[in-house]
Design a binder for these strands. Structure first.
Length: 421
RNA sequence: CGGGGUGUAGCAUAGUGGUAGUGUACUCGGUUUGGGACCGAGUGGUCCGGGUUCGAUUCCCGGCUCCCCGACCA
């Protein structure tokens, strides 16, 4: 993409109404636009980042048998009454409205109920199980207090997956497979080292649920970790009983601030029972489905990544999530020969399927470098008069600051995945 | 929802009971071109409602907004 056509612009200064680092950087770099408190639009750069994260999550969910779908934002009141969760005193984040034709609707803050209800159409027999479905959905939650930039919003994108199994054994196997899949997701996103499978309160069905907590100063949670044996416990369940059960002592654990980037729940048969979602088992008995739910906060991950992968100049994004891999920066653009040369390189990189943002704007070098640093694209390739004279390109790695000079051939080798010619 | 703060141009900020200033961004002209370059000329603004006052952006009341702390986060 040509940067001269990109409608977003960078800003030198952060908006006064953003205190969080993630929002400051994402807004300054033109990734997001704040619409209101806790509600952010994803602009071209931010959307590409969002899609990159989704692609990783999607791959891992598909790998464990997940089938992608997308549910609706508008939800029926009657459905939530079945599980006694329509009442505002039971669920305090509801956005609700009414239909002109009569009746109430809710805006989806979760999709457990609708998806369970829908599955009644498709699950009748043990032969239909197990079934795993997931979606990337915009959740709407009437939070009293949005905070921390994109990390806790009233509107956010979540990947939510639901498992439908015949019984506990099958469920547990999938639950464990999901833990492994989630670990791979965070690993691939560059958060593996700092993300912990954390014991947290389990709710009505089990003693513990598992949260995926990433060490992050802007996070809202406090957990206690032991890096050596990989144990992590949310402060909400940190007590003698938990410690004994997990075989650790309090002084082996370190307190850290974290952001919850994923969680998984075991619903047992209770959720399906309240919805009337049953199947006929092998002996013909009507049996409630054993359900589980598995979430990953996709837009929250953008915030966490922005917080963790940044320096004083701006974002320093891992290649897997960066909107582009290469920032092709043209200097001396007033020189026709240099410009033509850069145009040729750009065309070749695009042909070679490199993801490249071409800064072809009429700006000074300093301005372009500052923008490039702020946007955090992993590799900057400088095309300049100086470079043209020696027939080389300067390739700067954003992460390390390392500078290499490459020939045109080497450049294509490094960044192209398909033939340039 | 409790507490604290905030609101001036696209953005960041100053100031004042009497015609609102600066930086940046933007437009035009010129000079520049490896770290947000320079000179000149322009466009553009006091959150909303009420009150006090000859006069309110300023003071008072109410509302809203946004931020922060707490609560909440199935």
């Amino acid at each position: 993409m040509r940067q001269s056509k990109l409608f977003t612009k960078t800003r030198k200064e952060a908006p006064a109404d953003e205190a969080s680092l993630n929002a400051q950087l994402l807004i300054r770099a033109g990734y997001v636009h704040k619409e209101m408190a806790g509600v952010y639009a994803y602009l071209p750069l931010g959307l590409r980042m969002l899609e990159k994260i989704k692609a990783v999550v999607r791959e891992e969910m598909n790998a464990i048998g997940g089938q992608e779908l997308i549910m609706t934002s508008l939800q029926r009141k009657e459905l939530w009454e079945k599980t006694d969760r329509w009442d505002d005193t039971k669920v305090d984040v509801w956005f609700k409205s009414s239909l002109k034709s009569g009746g109430d609707v809710g805006f989806g803050w979760s999709h457990e109920e609708p998806i369970g209800e829908m599955m009644k159409n498709y699950i009748a027999s043990y032969k239909d199980l197990p079934m795993y479905v997931y979606q990337f959905q915009t959740k709407l939650r009437n939070e009293l207090r949005a905070k921390s930039g994109v990390m806790r919003g009233k509107e956010f994108v979540m990947k939510d997956m639901y498992s439908f199994s015949v019984g506990e054994e099958d469920h547990t196997a999938f639950y464990n497979a999901t833990i492994e899949a989630y670990k791979r997701v965070y690993e691939r996103l560059g958060l593996g080292e700092d993300t912990f499978v954390t014991f947290a309160s389990g709710g009505a069905f089990t003693q513990f649920s598992h949260e995926f907590q990433t060490v992050c100063a802007a996070g809202e949670d406090v957990i206690y970790i032991n890096r050596e044996n990989g144990i992590a416990i949310n402060e909400e369940v940190l007590n003698e009983e938990t410690l004994t059960k997990l075989g650790v002592t309090r002084d082996e654990l370190t307190e850290v601030k974290t952001a919850e980037v994923g969680n998984i729940f075991n619903f047992g048969r209770q959720k399906a029972e309240s919805l009337g979602l049953t199947f006929k088992n092998e002996t013909g008995e009507e049996t409630p489905v054993w359900m589980g739910s598995y979430g990953i906060g996709v837009t929250r991950l953008i915030g966490v990544i922005a917080e963790k992968f940044a320096d004083e100049k701006g974002l320093v994004l891992p290649a897997v999530v960066a909107p582009f891999t290469v920032h092709l920066v043209l200097l001396n653009q007033q020189d026709g020969e240099v410009r033509d040369w850069a145009e040729g390189i750009y065309a070749s990189l695009v042909k070679g399927s490199a993801e490249v943002l071409f800064d072809d704007r009429d700006q000074t070098a300093g301005h372009k470098f500052a923008d490039s640093d702020l946007m955090g694209i992993p590799y900057r390739v400088v095309v300049s008069k100086r470079g043209k004279e020696e027939g080389m390109f300067e390739v700067v790695e954003r992460h390390t600051g390392e500078v290499k000079k490459l020939t045109e051939e080497e450049l294509y080798q490094k960044f192209c995945t398909t033939d340039v010619e």
